[in-house]
Structures are given as structure tokens and as C-alpha cells.
Design a protein around this nucleic acid. Structure first.
Lengths: 158, 158
DNA sequence: GCCTAAAATTTTAGGCTTAAAATATTTGAG
DNA sequence: CTCAAATATTTTAAGCCTAAAATTTTAGGC
């Protein structure tokens, strides 16, 4: 009798493919993130979280609440507090209350913040284009579509 | 002559698609990571980095050097030191020198570490399968293949 | 053998991250 | 009006993360 080569109950092929997909997604992400972090640091002496915050605020000229930022960036609210503290100390963002509600603070980019973000965003676009240069336009579109579908499904079942 | 409709130099369509791809990759990653972190915490009172380290060591019964771990997990070596310190304090891993080279330390899972990892890995596989359930087997395979190609290209040009 | 360079790891300082507790404010039920 | 619940944010404690400096050990040139 031929012994079966595995004792554990085997995952379906699809399950294994999904696990493999997750691992590769994670690794691709880490490779790209590490490279971006390095370039942001050496070129602009800043960090990825700071860049993310500036990018979010740039798209919101009227400002955002701390909780909006937290939700949009998928990070905790306590986390946003620290990043905004540092950006404010550098004069790149501004906290304002003038809402009638003294609990909230509306955060906005300063002029300096806008300018610095524009400079960094231009470089960032170029970096991404070069780093993902190995991905054809067609593949990029297909992948992006699949990821969008994934996110829609995810949010539906939350 | 037809006037060009935009003032700013426009990115090629492919460039924009690659930027969009990166943003979606990042968001998908964060959604999944946050969910896994939460489940590892509530179910096993542990963290993703700890899990990653155990997973790496599980595949290496003869142990790994600190620098192997650092390279494999794509994190800094100083970072690995702290995680291993904590895992060792909990009795899940063991540091050994017995190499002839007193600079290196070989890290191994203990029996308890192996058992705990097996338990968590089984749950982890199920979680991923459910979380990525919205991705068909075919899409998962296609995506995984593209990501593998991406990684190969990346490493070639490093 | 000696001494400098290389290699492996740890330490340090600073920032990011989270969950949970604390603070401050607003809202709404009665 | 009052006060408890809800909301928005900050603080806290602990862990993760990095780059750069420091430490320890090995290897190689001479």
C-alpha cells in the first residue's frame, strides 16, 4: 500500500491560491513601501505617514476632522493626533475649531504644506511609475479592477 | 490647431493606471492586515509580526540566523531583535550560539512555539480564505501570477 | 602575531501604531 | 433644567519599525 503523502486535511486548491495571493500581496506591498519610505526620507526628509496625511488634506481644501483622517487613512485616531502634532509643529498643517462644536478640530494644509505636498507628489508619481514599470498598462488596469472589486465586496460584508 | 485641453503636463494613461494600482494595493493590504491583526489579538493574544516570525521559523527546522529572518521578513535587523526577545521570554523560541562563530545566534522554535504556530496557522488559513472569499480562484491565480512577475522583475533590477 | 576591515548583532533615539482609558463637549430623555 | 449617553479627541502604555551608532567577534594582509 502506498502511504498518503500528507496527514493533514488538505485545503482546496482555491483556498491555497487565495493564501498564496495574500502572501504575495503582502510582500509586494512591503517592497514598494520600503522603497518609498527610503526615497521620502533621503529626498524630502519626511515619512510615508506624513505624506499620506498631506495627500488626504490636499484633496480636501475645506479641511478634515481628525476622525475623517483616521477613517480615510485606515489608522487609529490616536495615531493621527501624533502625526498632526508633528506636521503642525513644522507649519505644514493648521488646527482650527471655529465650528460651534468645541470637540472637533478641523485640520487644513497651510500654504507651505500645499507647496511641499505638490513638490513631493510630483516626485512620488514618477517613483511609482518607475517602480511599477515592470507592470504593463493592461496588467495594471486588470489588477486595479480586481482590487476595486475586492474592496467593494469587503465593504458590503462589513 | 486644436488646443490641448490641459495645462499641466499629463501623465500617460499607463502611469496613472500604475499609480491607481499602487493606491488600491496599499488599501487592500491595510484592510486585510487590520482584520488579521484584530483576529490574532482577540483569538490568540498575539500580533502579526510575532506570527510572521513563527511562520518563518516553522519552515526552517534547523533554525535561522537573525539576519536571515530580517532579510526574509523584509524588516530591519534591530526590529527582529526585539520581537525575538519577546518570543524568547514567552518560551516560544530559543537562541543558540553553538556555531563556532560567536557573533551569530541561531534562532529556533521551541516545542511550545511549534504547537502554538500550528494552531494559529490553521485558523489563519481559514481567515484568509474567508476574507478573500470574494476573489474567485481564477482571479486569485491571475493576481498571484502577476504579483510574482512583479517581484521577479523587481529583484532583477535591484 | 598584529591590526585593520568586515560581519553579525544589539542598542539607541525617534517616530508610527494600536487598544483602551481619560477628557471635554454636545445631545437628548425625562 | 438635569444628567446620562453619545461624540470627538487626546493621552497612555506597550509594541513595532527604522537608520545609525556601538559592540563583539572573525578574517585577512602583512
Amino acid at each position: 500500500m502506498v502511504s498518503t503523502p500528507q496527514a493533514a486535511p488538505e485545503l482546496s486548491s482555491d483556498s491555497k491560491d487565495r493564501l498564496r495571493l495574500w502572501i504575495r500581496l503582502l510582500r509586494a506591498n512591503r517592497l514598494i513601501e520600503a522603497e518609498l519610505r527610503e526615497r521620502l526620507r533621503t529626498t524630502f526628509d519626511t515619512t510615508l505617514p506624513r505624506f499620506d496625511v498631506l495627500a488626504a488634506l490636499y484633496r480636501a481644501p475645506d479641511g478634515m476632522l481628525m476622525s475623517d483622517l483616521s477613517r480615510f487613512l485606515l489608522v487609529s485616531n490616536g495615531n493621527v493626533t501624533g502625526i498632526i502634532d508633528r506636521l503642525a509643529a513644522e507649519g505644514l498643517v493648521l488646527r482650527a475649531q471655529r465650528d460651534g462644536d468645541r470637540r472637533t478640530s478641523i485640520v487644513r494644509l497651510t500654504r507651505a504644506g500645499e507647496e511641499q505636498f505638490r513638490t513631493m507628489a510630483a516626485a512620488h508619481e514618477g517613483w511609482i511609475d518607475a517602480l511599477l514599470g515592470g507592470v504593463s498598462g493592461n496588467d495594471a488596469r486588470r489588477l486595479a479592477t480586481m482590487l476595486k472589486t475586492f474592496r467593494s465586496n469587503w465593504e458590503k460584508q462589513e
